[in-house]
Amino acid sequence: MLLECKNLCKSYGTKIALNNVNLNIERGRIIGLLGPNGSGKTTLIKILSGILTASSGEALISGNPIGIETKKIVSYLPERTYLSEWMTVRQAVNFFKDFYDDFSEETAYDMLERLNISPADSLKTMSKGTKEKVQLILVMSRHAELFLLDEPIGGVDPAARDYILKTILTNYNENASVIISTHLISDVENILDEVVFLKYGCLMLHKTVDEIREENGKSVDALFREVFAC
């Protein structure tokens, strides 16, 4: 088992963000983490990446509690970019190379080239979407075991979205899993193995996409709209 969450809870003061989440994820899977705004998706991802600590319960990645050992094998894409504006793309690549043992410079430059992003460009001259692409490329160029992608395709155009999803498909390996949180379900649905629905911090459903289609005769997107109808 790559990831095990046992009775994971997180509260911010009196507000409960995660309520007793039990979740097991195997290796070699692509998982969609879906839920309306404020359902706890980002909180869960931040706990797994070690940015937040759980209020109670436990999360194990590859058998280790969240800490130095798990950070080595977890590649995290936050909602917002954290790269410094003054950096050029090449400097950002070097920064990642310094930081992570498992970073592949070659993979990064290859993807940058295919998206027509020049390594000499500095981040402050880039559009929001291009910055997001750079960040995702850096995160996906690691040979990590667990990729946590928080809204990876929100700000990019549909053509780049297709390329990014293809990148995710071709870059992950059988030993690794990818957790993608997103609202754009129909865009990612075809590449997902499993989906996890969160609602008010509770895990509502954890099934394979094929199971959902077989049992409900509808897409994950349609089911989501039904489950979370306002």
Partner: peptide, 17 residues
């Protein structure tokens, strides 16, 4: 499997199945 999956833009596990 991988090439077909990328071409169809689906998950490799789904293609394998």
């Amino acid at each position: 499997v991988r090439e077909l999956a990328a071409e169809a833009e689906v998950n490799p596990n789904t293609m394998q199945k």
